[in-house]
């Protein structure tokens, strides 16, 4: 016998999550159903709570509980440096390193002719407005090191070119701990083209 319609609808909704197929979604739902009568209601409450209280930061696009996120409100962050990333996940990855103390700007994707994504689909205008505010001295373009990421970085570099800020891009090339012998040709070629001088 088929599962009741509400359960089927829930399974269908969960399959929209990244990496979740129908089998996994069914397993999740059955787990919650079997756990306790209130377990699923608790989950629904948490979802409703998050949906009602969380929104993109009006300044940088990161996740916020108010108009501005924790980074933008934090007086200890370096307000002269803005790191531009594709997604919220990229912010979390950079924060894990513990090296960066500036602010962020989450574009919400990359420019892609293949996907029909242009500058108007991303938070590009917001970035230019932030820079025009005068407080920013350096913009780090930390988009991906693939063709779309490079396109986005070059586009932003050009847009920021005459605004009096330093525009930088994280280094790309040979991963730490790897041997040149085992590098693929694409990575190696880009590493060689991006080589830098070192001192004596």
């Amino acid at each position: 016998m088929a599962l009741p319609a509400p359960v089927q609808r829930l399974i269908a909704e969960l399959t929209k999550l990244p990496g979740v197929g129908e089998k996994t979604a069914t397993r999740y739902v059955l787990f919650w159903l079997q756990r306790s009568p209130n377990a699923m209601k608790d989950l629904a409450d948490r979802l409703a709570d998050a949906a009602g209280s969380v929104r993109p930061c009006l300044v940088c696009g990161y996740v916020a509980e108010a108009e501005r996120c924790g980074f933008c409100e934090d007086p200890a962050r370096d307000r002269a440096t803005v790191c531009v990333v594709e997604s919220v996940a990229d912010v979390l990855a950079i924060e894990r390193v513990g090296e960066y103390r500036g602010l962020y700007h989450v574009l919400g994707g990359v420019l892609s002719a293949l996907r029909g994504v242009g500058p108007d689909h991303l938070r590009v205008a917001g970035l230019l407005d932030r820079v025009a505010g005068g407080e920013v001295r350096e913009v780090i373009l930390a988009t991906g090191a693939d063709a779309e990421g490079e396109t986005t970085a070059l586009y932003l570099a050009r847009a920021l070119g005459d605004r009096g800020v330093r525009v930088t891009r994280p280094a790309t090339g040979i991963p730490m701990g790897s041997s040149i012998e085992f590098l693929d040709a694409v990575t190696l070629m880009r590493a060689l083209r991006g080589r830098k001088e070192i001192g004596p």
């Binding site: 396109t151 070059l154 040709a185």
Partner: peptide, 25 residues
Amino acid sequence: ADPIRQFPGILEDLARLEAGQAMLA
């Protein structure tokens, strides 16, 4: 996928990147 040939001149220029993606699309 073992690379045979790359086009580094496309990757280093915005106009070429945009046109190249338009060609693939």
